[in-house]
């Protein structure tokens, strides 16, 4: 073990024993890292965006290509998040309430998009739906376009955000077990009533947390979407792609302006996440006290 980790362990030990110096060092260290690697870059983005004043800032955000990019991003989020919500609940339900062969394989498969590089996620769709792909000739004959158009972008976003809701719900639902549902059925509830009045209230905050994470990722996805986009300005560029284009055109102020728009959206999502997380942990505490 290196001396650095030894000292770190010693400091951590000291902190646990209530050594005020060690504790302060640890906290100061955490703050330093936080300021240096998170707050400072965020400030740089904002300061670059506002370098030429609010006029150019808003001009960059309300420019037609930027608006088109924002619209497309919202469309991708608006389709992929609800679909992932339905899929996530169904998958978590299936995995946590039933026993069946191949269950662990299914759980592993749900995680696949986390481990696959986004570039490959994009290429999968090009290889399937591109002109040279499996379904290419058929799609071309029927004049249906999937890659290099909105459907491809939605599919790519869907793929990379696939695990978020399910991953969040599976441990929660496993922890809760099946007793309450069984009780509901014994009292005469049908399947839908049981889900609506028993399961859903129990998983509500976990679900919201998963959806929030899913939304954040869907909004910010770059790699997979970049592969299937075709980069047509005002048509198939999402916000992150638009930022890259502006940056590559020496248009730094506009690039950082649009980037800060993404940043603000991310901060809103973060607040939502914090809120749902608090509710979730309060729920778990009250469960524990009962």
């Amino acid at each position: 073990m290196s001396s650095a980790t030894l000292t770190a362990a010693a400091v951590a030990n000291a902190a646990r024993r209530g050594n005020p110096l060690g504790r302060r060092l640890l906290i100061a260290g955490a703050w330093l890292v936080f300021l240096l690697f998170l707050v400072l870059p965020l400030l740089v983005v904002l300061s670059q965006a506002l370098k030429l004043g609010f006029g150019t800032f808003f001009a960059a955000i309300f420019e037609p290509d930027a608006i088109a990019a924002l619209k497309l991003t919202l469309i991708a989020v608006g389709i992929s998040v609800p679909l992932n919500l339905v899929f996530g609940v169904a998958a978590a339900w299936c995995v946590s309430k039933y026993e069946f062969p191949g269950k662990s394989v299914l759980i592993t498969l749900i995680d696949l998009p986390f481990s696959v590089s986004p570039v490959i996620a994009g290429l999968i769709y090009v290889l399937m739906f591109g002109s040279q792909g499996w379904f290419g000739p058929w799609l071309s004959d029927h004049d249906i376009q999937i890659v290099f158009a909105v459907p491809g972008i939605v599919l790519a976003t869907l793929f990379v955000t696939f695990p978020f809701v399910a991953r969040e719900l599976i441990p929660l639902m496993q922890e809760q077990g099946t007793q309450e549902e069984e009780a509901a059925r014994l009292l005469g509830a049908n399947g839908w009533q049981m889900f609506w009045h028993v399961t859903l209230p129990n998983i509500k905050w976990g679900l919201i947390y998963g959806v929030v994470l899913c939304t954040a990722r869907a909004m910010g996805e770059f790699g997979a979407v970049s592969v299937v986009s075709g980069h047509i300005r005002g048509l198939t560029n999402t916000l992150p792609l638009h930022v890259e284009i502006l940056y590559n055109e020496y248009n730094h102020v506009a690039a950082f302006s649009v980037a800060s728009l993404l940043l603000v959206m991310a901060l809103v999502i973060l607040l939502l996440k914090q809120w749902s997380e608090n509710r979730l942990s309060r729920l778990r505490h009250s469960d524990a006290e009962e």
């Binding site: 090009v126 739906f129 591109g130 002109s131 040279q132 792909g133 376009q145 890659v147 290099f148």
Partner: peptide, 8 residues
């Protein structure tokens, strides 16, 4: 490559 793959 993109045009070959179907970018119109």
């Amino acid at each position: 490559r993109a045009v070959i793959d179907g970018l119109r």
